[in-house]
């Protein structure tokens, strides 16, 4: 898109907002897998809304990245959402993993949405008024996501041996990789010092652990709670710096962006 002058994406502000937007887009994209094939029709409808929210919220965050620099906001949003090279995406690697089975999907949904709610709550105090205002709005919408995630968490935990085992398998895969969510973006210190990001990702990790650990313990999953100082496993590290696995580079990205890339400048 030669005629689209995108803002500087390397600023701490852009990097922080891209991390938030890309988390939403890629997890929403993966969640949309269940539309039409979820384990019940009722759940199909519920989960589709969660997928749509991811896509919709990403759009709203990309608009803040654009910060009024382009006239055609939709084209700018698509240039960000669908027009970047894979290494320019800043989502955590756990977001790009395939849905695997419903237990893994629910474990990830539970982890991601608790994290997102905590991040949004802290962003409500951002010194950037647009960021603060959008965070408050989205936090309201996340309430449904949290209730939905907790609903199935509770039911799977007491849903018999097989369900509990599968949920345990899901968390075994998700929890170590989830630590990648808390890696800082480039020059994050600057964004924290400016008050754009009132709480850095590293401190968000503490808050997330504080809120998630008791629930995991009550569910008999205490052994899976990551240690306070646990390192991000290599295979899930540096997503926030643009390192991605084949799950994104070979699976998600080509399919998600092909049509957009094949027709530069087209309107749809």
């Amino acid at each position: 898109m030669a005629d689209l002058a995108l803002p500087d994406l390397s600023t701490p502000r852009s990097q922080v907002l891209l991390a938030i937007a890309d988390d939403a887009l890629i997890s929403g994209h993966r969640a949309s897998h269940w539309t039409g094939v979820a384990p019940s029709l009722e759940e199909d409808l519920a989960f589709s809304t969660i997928a749509q929210a991811g896509i919709n919220h990403a759009d709203l965050w990309y608009q803040l990245v654009l910060d009024g620099t382009v006239d055609d906001v939709s084209a700018g949003v698509d240039a960000l959402g669908l027009g970047r090279e894979p290494e320019a995406y800043r989502h955590a690697i756990v977001c790009e993993r395939p849905p695997r089975d419903f237990a893994y999907t629910l474990a990830r949904h539970w982890v991601l949405d608790r994290f997102e709610a905590i991040r949004l709550a802290s962003l409500a105090a951002s010194t950037d008024p647009e960021v603060a205002a959008l965070s408050v709005k989205l936090l309201h919408e996340h309430r449904y996501h949290l209730e939905h995630a907790q609903l199935w968490f509770d039911r799977l935990v007491r849903g018999g041996d097989e369900a509990a085992d599968r949920l345990r398998d899901g968390f075994t895969q998700v929890l170590p990789e989830a630590l990648g969510l808390f890696e800082p973006v480039e020059d994050e210190d600057q964004a924290v010092a400016d008050g754009l990001l009132p709480v850095g990702h590293a401190r968000l990790r503490e808050r997330w652990l504080e809120s998630a650990a008791p629930l995991l313990e009550q569910a008999g999953l205490a052994d899976l709670v990551p240690a306070v100082d646990a390192a991000v496993p290599d295979e899930a590290a540096f997503g926030r710096r643009g390192c991605h696995t084949d799950d994104f580079v070979v699976d998600v990205w080509p399919e998600m962006t092909r049509l957009y890339r094949e027709h530069p400048g087209a309107r749809w």
């Binding site: 919709n56 919220h57 709203l60 709005k137 989205l138 309201h140 919408e141 209730e147």
Partner: peptide, 11 residues
């Protein structure tokens, strides 16, 4: 309040 909307869903 669970039905209150703050985000545009006109799509």
């Amino acid at each position: 309040t669970l039905l209150e909307r703050q985000v545009d869903i006109s799509y």
